[in-house]
Design a protein around this nucleic acid. Structure first.
Length: 645
DNA sequence: TTCGGAATGG
DNA sequence: CCATTCCGAA
C-alpha cells in the first residue's frame, strides 16, 4: 500500500482476450491443470506453491504458519508475505490486497478456501487433490504441532491393502501410458519439460519449485508414498516438522537455507526400502483433515515415519514399484470415491462400513458372474478389466458468491456423459514425477457431490450447501486422472449402467476402459471423527442393497457407497467451513468437453507432449543413479527468496 | 476484511 | 492459465 500504485504501466490496449478456451487440444479438463506445459504463466512459481514453501520454513514462521486444522494457515504478517511474494515475482508493488486476490482465485480452483472468521487465515484443500501433487507437504507441522488431530480414522483401511503390488513388473506398465500415447505421461512429460526458471532476471533466485530437478529423479522419490499413508504423512514428509532431519534449525537468512537436504521439498526418500518401513510407515501427522482416509491405526507421531528416512535405495524394481505406487498414490489421495469406482481392484476401506464392505470386497471374487468390483488390492498384474478413466472430481467449486449478479443459470449438467471425458491423468503422474508441478492438476476440480448430496441430502434438511451448477464445470472441472486415452469412447462406452445415468453424478458414470496400470487403491475417507453413520441419509438412489447385478462391470454398489460417503464427506466439509456458496455459474468455463474427438488422443498429436515414455524412462535411470545427488541439487535450488530482482 | 468482476500482462 | 491491478461491494 504504501507504495504508490502507479499504474502507469504499460497499459496498452491489448485486446481482451475474449475467451479462454481451454485447450483445444483436446483435453477435457481444464487447462490450467496442466499449465506447465505451455503456459508461461504457469511456469513460474505459483502462489500456492510459494505459500507452501513459506509454510515449510521456520524462518517464516512469523509471517505465515500453519495453524489450526488441517491445512489451515494464517498469514501473520500480510505485508511481509506480500513482500516476499512480490520479491519472488519481481513485483515490487505487490501487496496483500493483490496477493489475496490471487489467493481468492484459488477458491475456485479449490486449492484454497478461506477459513471464515479468522483473519488472514486460509486453508488448503489438501483433502482433495492437492496432495496428489504435493504429498510431501507438511501441513500442520510447523512448530506446533500438528497434530491435531490425527484423525481417528479407521485404521482399517490400512490393513487391507498391501501396498506393494504384486507384480512389480507391471508397474511400469504401461498401462497408462501406453495406452494412450498422450496419456498420462504426456502430462508428465510436459511438466518435466517445463523448466522452471526463476523469475527474476538474474536467475539467481532459484525457484523454489524444484521441479525440474525433481523431475526425473525426484519424482521418483516421492512416489513411494505408501498408499496407505495419508496425506498427513505425506505432508510431513515434505519437510515439515515431521522430518527430523528437516530443518535442523539452522536456517539461513533468506538466502540460505539450511541444508539443502532438509529443506527440500522432496520427501526424502519416500521410498522405503523394499521391505522396510515403507509399507507401513505410520502416518504422521495428521494435519489433514478431511479426508484422511487411510489412517493407520496408530497415531501419528510427529516424528516421522521411518520412511522418511533418508536413504533411498533404488533398485530398478523398486523404482518400478515406486512408480507404480506413485500412480496409485496419486489416484488414491483423497479422491472422490468416484475415482475408485472404476477400479476393480481397488479396495476401499471405509471406516465405518468397512466391515461390511469388507466382506464383500474381501471375497475374492473370483471372477464370476458377478464381477465384484473389487478384486485384490492392487494387483497390477491383472489388468482390470475395465478401468475407466478415473475422473476425480474435486470439491465443488465454491461458488463464489456472486450473488449480486445473480445470474446464472444453472444448467444441470446434463451431460452426463460427458464423460468421456477424458481425463487426464496428468495430475497424478505428472506431478509425481516431477516435483513441483503444480497442483494444478489437483485443481482440477470438479465437482462434487453436490448433486447427490444436494438432491438427496437435501431432503435431510441440510442446508444446502452448495448447490451449484456445476454443470459445465463439471465436465471440465473434474479432473480426471487417468489416461486420457480414453479416446475411444466406444470401447468403453459402456452400456453399463442401465439404470441411470447418474446424473447426479456424472462422475460415476462412465466407466471406461480400464486403464491398466493404474490402480488406485484406496481412498481415504476421512471423516473426521464424527461418526456419521447415523445420519446418513440414504439416498434414494443409494442402493440399499448392493447388488451388482447388472452388468455393471464396475461396481455399482460400491459406487453408491462411495457416493454416499462422499457426499457425507462433502457435507462435512462444507459444514465445517461452510460457507454458503452459492451457485455460481461458471460462466465461461467452457464447454468443451467434448470428449471425443480426436482430442484426446492428442497426446501425441497436437499436444506437444513429449514422449511420455521418454520421460519416464529417463527418470528411472536417473533415479537409480544418483538419486541422492539429484536430491541434493534439487534441494539446493530451492530457495524462496529471491534476491533482488 | 473479504469477495469477486474486469481488464490486462505474460 | 495465472496472476496483477483496480475497484466497488458487502
Amino acid at each position: 500500500m504504501s507504495q504508490i500504485q502507479h499504474k502507469v504501466e504499460w497499459r496498452r490496449g491489448k485486446k481482451r482476450r475474449a475467451e479462454k478456451r481451454p485447450g483445444q487440444a483436446g483435453f477435457a479438463f481444464p487447462d490450467w491443470a496442466y499449465k506447465p506445459e505451455s503456459s508461461p504463466g504457469s511456469r513460474q512459481i505459483q502462489l500456492w506453491h510459494f505459500i507452501l514453501e513459506l509454510l515449510r520454513k521456520e524462518e517464516y514462521h512469523d509471517v505465515i504458519a500453519w495453524q489450526g486444522d488441517y491445512g489451515e494457515f494464517v498469514i501473520k504478517d500480510p505485508d511481509e508475505v506480500a513482500r516476499l511474494w512480490g520479491a519472488r515475482k519481481c513485483k515490487p508493488q505487490m501487496n496483500y490486497d493483490k496477493l489475496s486476490r490471487a489467493l481468492r482465485y484459488y477458491y475456485n480452483k479449490r486449492i484454497l478456501h478461506k477459513t471464515k472468521g479468522k483473519r488472514f487465515t486460509y486453508k488448503f484443500n489438501f483433502n482433495k487433490l492437492v496432495l496428489v501433487n504435493y504429498p510431501f507437504i507438511d501441513m500442520g507441522s510447523t512448530g506446533s504441532g500438528v497434530p491435531q488431530s490425527a484423525p481417528p480414522l479407521p485404521s482399517a483401511a490400512g490393513t487391507h491393502f498391501r501396498f506393494p503390488p504384486s507384480t512389480p513388473s507391471d508397474m511400469l506398465s504401461p498401462n497408462e501410458d501406453l495406452r494412450s500415447p498422450g496419456g498420462v505421461f504426456s502430462a508428465v512429460a510436459r511438466r518435466m519439460a517445463r523448466g522452471s526458471v526463476s523469475d527474476c532476471s538474474d536467475g539467481t533466485s532459484v525457484n523454489s519449485e524444484i521441479e525440474d530437478v525433481g523431475g526425473p529423479g525426484g519424482g521418483g522419490y516421492r512416489s513411494m508414498i505408501h498408499p496407505r499413508m495419508s496425506h498427513e504423512s505425506l505432508f510431513r514428509m515434505y519437510g515439515g516438522a515431521g522430518n527430523p532431519n528437516a530443518h535442523p534449525g539452522s536456517r539461513g537468512p533468506l538466502g540460505h537455507r539450511v541444508h539443502p537436504d532438509n529443506l527440500s521439498p522432496f520427501p526424502v526418500s519416500p521410498l522405503p526400502g523394499p521391505g522396510g518401513a515403507g509399507l507401513l510407515a505410520p502416518p504422521l501427522s495428521p494435519a489433514l483433515s478431511l479426508t484422511p482416509s487411510s489412517h493407520l491405526p496408530y497415531t501419528p507421531s510427529p516424528s516421522l515415519s521411518p520412511m522418511l528416512g533418508s536413504h533411498f535405495s533404488f533398485n530398478p524394481e523398486e523404482m518400478k514399484r515406486y512408480l507404480q505406487a506413485h500412480h496409485q498414490s496419486v489416484y488414491n489421495y483423497h479422491l472422490s470415491p468416484r475415482a475408485f469406482l472404476h477400479y476393480p481392484n481397488v479396495i476401499i476401506p471405509q471406516p465405518h462400513r468397512l466391515a461390511q464392505d469388507k466382506r464383500e470386497l474381501a471375497h475374492p471374487h473370483s471372477a464370476h458372474s458377478h464381477p465384484h468390483p473389487i478384486h485384490h488390492p492392487l494387483h497390477l498384474g491383472e489388468e482390470p478389466p475395465h478401468l475407466s478413466p478415473f475422473k476425480f472430481k474435486l470439491q465443488p467449486p465454491p461458488l463464489g458468491r456472486k450473488q449480486r449478479d445473480g445470474s446464472q443459470d444453472h444448467h444441470p449438467r446434463q451431460s452426463s456423459l460427458s464423460s468421456g471425458s477424458g481425463s487426464l491423468s496428468s495430475s497424478g503422474l505428472g506431478s509425481s514425477l516431477s516435483f513441483g508441478s503444480d497442483l494444478s492438476s489437483a485443481g482440477g476440480s470438479g465437482l462434487i457431490s453436490n448433486s447427490s448430496s444436494t438432491g438427496s441430502l437435501n431432503s435431510t434438511g441440510l442446508p444446502k450447501i452448495k448447490v451449484e451448477p456445476i454443470s459445465d464445470i463439471e465436465s471440465e472441472e473434474e479432473v480426471e486422472v487417468t489416461d486420457i486415452s480414453d479416446e475411444d469412447p466406444d470401447d468403453r462406452a459402456p452400456p453399463t449402467h442401465p439404470h441411470d445415468e447418474d446424473l447426479d453424478e456424472d462422475v460415476f458414470k462412465a466407466p471406461a476402459p480400464p486403464p491398466p496400470g493404474l490402480l488406485p487403491f484406496f481412498t481415504s475417507h476421512p471423516h473426521r471423527g464424527p461418526p456419521n453413520l447415523k445420519s446418513e441419509p440414504a439416498e434414494p438412489g443409494d442402493t440399499p442393497s448392493p447388488s451388482p447385478a447388472q452388468g455393471q462391470t464396475k461396481c455399482i454398489p460400491l459406487k453408491l457407497r462411495f457416493k454416499r460417503r462422499w457426499s457425507e464427506d462433502q457435507r462435512m466439509e462444507a459444514m465445517e467451513e461452510q460457507d454458503d456458496k452459492k451457485v455460481r455459474g461458471e460462466k465461461e468455463r467452457e464447454r468443451e468437453t467434448e470428449k471425443n474427438g480426436g482430442m484426446q488422443e492428442n497426446g501425441a498429436g497436437s499436444a506437444p507432449s513429449p514422449p511420455a515414455l521418454g520421460g519416464y524412462e529417463c527418470s528411472l535411470p536417473l533415479a537409480q543413479r544418483g538419486v541422492n545427488q539429484d536430491l541434493h541439487q534439487a534441494t539446493a535450488q530451492l530457495s524462496l527468496e529471491n534476491k533482488d530482482c
